[in-house]
Nucleic acid binder design. Structure first.
Length: 127
RNA sequence: GAAAGCAGGCGAGGUGAUCGCAGUUGCCGCUGCUUGCAGUGGUGGCUGAGGAAAGUCCGGGCUCCCGAAUGGCCAGGCUUGCUGGGUAACGCCCAGUGCGGGUGACCGUGAGGAGAGUGCCACAGAAACACACCGCCGAUGGCCGGCUUGCCGGCACAGGCAAGGGUGCAAGGGUGCGGUAAGAGCGCACCAGCAGCAUCGAGAGGUGCUGGCUCGGUAAACCCCGGCCGGGAGCAAGGCCCAGGGACGAUGGUUGGCCAUUGACCGGUCCCGACAACAGCGCGCCGCUCGAGGCCACCGGUAACGGUGGUCCCAGACAGAUGAUCAUCCAGCGAACAGAACCCGGCUUACGUCCUGCUUUCCGCC
RNA sequence: GCCCGUGUAAUCCAACCGGUAGAGAUAGGCGACUUAAAAUCGCUCCAGUGCGGGUUCGAAUCCCGCCACGGGCA
């Protein structure tokens, strides 16, 4: 499962911004950075952006040398993001998820479990 | 039936549906203006990873820099190195020769030169390019003794030998017979090597005859010989989105060096001017995919491959696209290695069940 | 995508042109010293050189192919 364009993070400046300003949350082998959307870093006129969430997954080659395995993890987490129901009063937010070495060893269920607790701890859901 | 060898094919099992992604294209809407384009949204069509996409080990194309091109000499580099062919090229492929391995089908091969020179050959050993430790002999000469006075015996001094022993990866042709004081290619037979001749072959080489009689190993040590080669960086190349013009300077510079020929260049310094800064460190654009291209047929060739004709268009992303769910079909919950990133040709490595064909050996039965 | 470098005792490192893998340091064990410990001294243990082939009489070293790790380039 792959994200549609309006949910993607694009451009080096966007990523630098999140790495510098983002609030970090840690859960197991996952690390999430949350930052308010800075729409001036994007090229589209602001009225087309609306209040969307944008999301990105970073998996370095240290996680696994095999590109196939990294692609599989990314698809899994993209799908988890799309299925997730977020707080309705959430302002436009950018999320960046980092995977640490060893994440390949985890099963899909374990990884998704860590994802949902991470989202809760970051205060992005209702419950 | 079992085991094995070789060659080749295939590789999300097929079909359909829904949701979602990338490219492209048709239609509709909106925005902008340069009025037929750009951006964006919706909707339909088509296309969408591999045999290795991998490792980055070779060979090219392409691009820029070192100013350009051609020729010669020298230098430098190259695991380039049996022969002949194929290819754009290759360290690749095909066919053959020699050598080695296997009962065999077959497989491997880094296979120029040690008779140009230098180096090295630890330990052991006398000696590792030239020698004698133990040893054999002592014919010849020397010394001693005997006597039938030119012979015999002894010594092992001069000297001869490299057979045997020992050392070692290796002691320098091997085995046998003759020969000799003892020995030795000293002579002979066979074998191995070398040279010459004849002959077969396009060649590497094969076969036969003759000859003299022997020269250690190592070149994946330096090196010699033959062959090949401008160098460097790499699509993160490079170009566009950008505004340039003038003056000084006049011999200096430049491919590893030199020479010859042709034909050129401006690096440098200064002045004037323009633009920009929520894009110049970019959610930018191009390069970016039609190519030594795939498939089919015929022809040439043992083959690699080549020729002719027809036909097809087959990913081009940029935080980086193929997945999820369901249904159904063959008997099997659906296998492994693994994800294009400028493009080709190879090699290597990982992986797999399955399939196909040919062949060999063994066992059983007729 | 591209370009480099490094792999040897538990750890850090030597062994240069091939000749029995250790010169050394840290750590471990035993003993001495000490009431006990630390420090110090003595002794000792620890590998076949990342893996697989090849050349050679002989390979950590030379050659080829892999593997792992580290670094650099916008």
């Amino acid at each position: 499962m792959v994200l549609p364009q309006r949910h993607r993070l694009r451009g080096r400046g966007v990523f630098d911004y999140i790495y510098q300003r983002g609030q970090r949350f840690q859960q197991g082998l996952l690390q999430l950075r949350v930052a308010d959307a800075a729409t001036n870093l994007l090229r589209e006129p602001p009225e087309t952006l609306e209040g969307e969430l944008r999301f990105g997954v970073v998996i370095s080659s240290k996680v696994s040398k095999r590109a196939v395995k990294r692609n599989r993890l990314r698809r899994l987490l993209h799908e988890a993001f799309l299925r997730q129901t977020f707080r309705s009063d959430l302002p436009p937010t950018w999320l960046l998820l980092n995977l640490r070495p060893g994440a390949v060893e985890l099963s899909d269920d374990n990884l998704l479990e860590e994802w949902s607790t991470l989202i809760q701890r970051a205060g992005l859901t209702d419950s």
